[in-house]
Simulated scan of single mutants.
Amino acid sequence: MTLEILKAKEDLRNLIDEYAYLSDEWKISEVMNLFTPDVTYKVHMNGALVADVSGRENMEQDFNFHASQVKTYFTLNGQHTTKIDGDTATGISFAQIKMIREADGKNVLTDYSVKYDDYYVKQNEKWFIKDRVAHFLIIETRSIS
């Protein structure tokens, strides 16, 4: 493995982690800067396609809508495997995402186990997410105190 490939893998891991950090802090406009302007983002929950968004502007509106319904985010990234091919790459990553919303005056925790399938591009020496498919594989919801 070359130093160039190792650097690309590190940069891509940092990209994934930055997505989590910024999302957890509701820095949606900064999250959008991690994507290409023509990004596609699909979300599957329990195997069903529930969202299909194209373009950074549409995605920002969608993310802001969802963030407006959440009191607290917490993301923990797990495995991240990439295949580098010059200025493009594919990746698979896993995350645990916890969201607290209020329902009927109570805090409700939803715990998501997510697998992301990503396609990355390198532009001007920086990596971006061009296409992302999120698979919400396990979803657990419960009231908390």
Rank of each mutant, 00 (worst) to 15 (best):
M1S: 14
M1Y: 09
E4I: 02
L6P: 01
L6E: 15
D11I: 10
L12P: 04
R13N: 03
L15T: 07
I16N: 15
D17F: 11
A20Y: 08
L22D: 06
S23G: 11
S23T: 14
S23W: 08
W26I: 00
W26Y: 13
K27R: 12
K27D: 09
S29Q: 11
M32K: 05
M32W: 07
P37R: 10
P37Q: 12
D38P: 10
V39F: 07
V43P: 06
M45A: 07
G47C: 05
A51D: 11
A51I: 01
V53W: 11
R56Q: 11
R56E: 03
E57S: 12
E57K: 11
M59C: 05
E60I: 13
D62P: 00
F63A: 03
N64E: 12
F65R: 12
F65H: 13
H66T: 09
Q69V: 02
V70L: 06
V70F: 03
T72H: 15
F74L: 09
F74M: 10
L76P: 02
N77E: 09
G78V: 11
G78L: 11
G78K: 09
G78T: 11
Q79F: 09
T82F: 15
K83P: 04
D85L: 01
D85S: 14
D85T: 07
G86V: 10
G86T: 10
D87S: 11
A89H: 05
A89N: 06
T90S: 14
G91W: 01
I92D: 00
F94R: 09
A95C: 14
I97A: 14
M99I: 07
R101Y: 12
R101K: 15
E102L: 03
D104W: 04
D104I: 00
G105V: 02
V108T: 08
L109K: 10
D111Y: 07
V114C: 02
K115M: 07
D118I: 02
D118L: 01
Y119L: 04
Y119H: 14
Y119D: 04
Y120F: 15
Y120L: 08
K122W: 02
K122G: 04
Q123S: 10
E125L: 06
K126G: 03
W127M: 02
W127P: 02
I129E: 11
D131Q: 03
D131F: 00
R132A: 00
R132W: 01
V133I: 15
I138A: 08
I138N: 12
I139Q: 13
I139R: 10
E140I: 03
T141C: 01
T141N: 06
R142M: 09
S143Q: 15
I144H: 11
S145W: 03
